[in-house]
Write a protein that binds this DNA or RNA. Structure first.
Lengths: 178, 178
DNA sequence: GTCTATATCAAGATAGAC
DNA sequence: GTCTATCTTGATATAGAC
């Protein structure tokens, strides 16, 4: 269930984050500019600075939302009991494919942790740790596999005829064999 | 041994690629601008366009070199016989750590294959395919793991205390267990 | 092979009025 | 909360002279 924590943003700041998210997802990271975000709201770029100190802060708000949404997907995976690594991998891949530009913003660069809503990154990581048998090394290795597959998929690095599903299956079988 | 194929570039173009590579490796991808490359050679940016049609072509020349160097590392790994996946993983990680900005240029974005020197990507991929028992799915899964680990390492995504070595070992063991 | 001059475009951000 | 006007910076690329 959506536990709906109180929003840390003012109503107008929330509208700005929503607009920024729309720009990002529909036009890509390069199009995520203060001008474009403002234009989507029918205002001018300088007005945004009354609500966010700079662009980094706005991006961090998008990323914090992304981690919460990813965590919710993880927490709803393998419904009923504890999620298995295969369930989380499916949820992870689905999230990345549904929001490719958001995924890259969240994972493919240095993370300004000092600007994030506290705890959101950890919340998204916890289900993976648990599914890996509370083995941090195994959780990190599995995460790396999923991240690598996702990025290679998103950037179109596999050859045209490649069976991406089979590569996912092969990797997951390796990580879940005992 | 370095079989030294004939250079496809004119001598001056080769100097430009060398300068560009130096800018990239020492200052990062954002600093890889036509102005900065020219400045390193003591000339002006417009002069570069007599040697390369545009920036994409210059980047592609850097990337082609990178694939050749990566292939050479792979071909020299596990010296003597055929390389094992663990050997290639070590070589892969070493390459990425020695040339982090080059690595990201090569792997972390869409690849302009139409601008590459033909065959260089395939040459770097072949040793991995062979080490994976000529199983393309296994080769791709192992590559994804290595790429994911590398990117998470380069972007500083693992928590401060994380034992990255152990995560590599855990993943490699998963892929090499039978 | 390199130059100057320039076109074109666009980014983040600030000052100060309303 | 938004505006206009502006600053500052910097990118790729072309034209045409030397």
């Amino acid at each position: 269930m959506a536990s709906s924590a109180p929003d840390r943003l003012t109503p107008r700041a929330r509208e700005i984050v929503t607009a920024a998210r729309e720009v990002l997802e529909s036009e890509g990271l390069a199009a995520l500019t203060m001008r474009n975000v403002a234009a989507r709201l029918g205002i001018r770029a300088p007005s945004l600075y009354k609500h966010f100190p700079d662009k980094d802060a706005l991006e961090a708000a998008i990323i914090s939302d992304g981690f919460v949404e990813m965590a919710e997907e993880f927490e709803g995976a393998g419904d009923g009991g504890a999620a298995l690594l295969v369930d989380l991998a499916a949820a992870y891949r689905a999230f990345a494919r549904a929001h490719p530009h958001l995924y890259r913003l969240m994972t493919d660069q240095e993370l300004r942790r000092d600007l994030l809503v506290p705890g959101v990154e950890e919340r998204a990581a916890l289900p993976v740790y648990l599914a890996a048998g509370e083995n941090a090394d195994r959780a990190r290795a599995a995460w790396a596999f999923a991240h690598g597959m996702t990025m290679l998929e998103l950037t179109g690095r596999f050859p045209p005829g490649a069976d991406v599903e089979a590569a996912w299956d092969t990797g997951l079988r390796a990580f879940t064999a005992r």
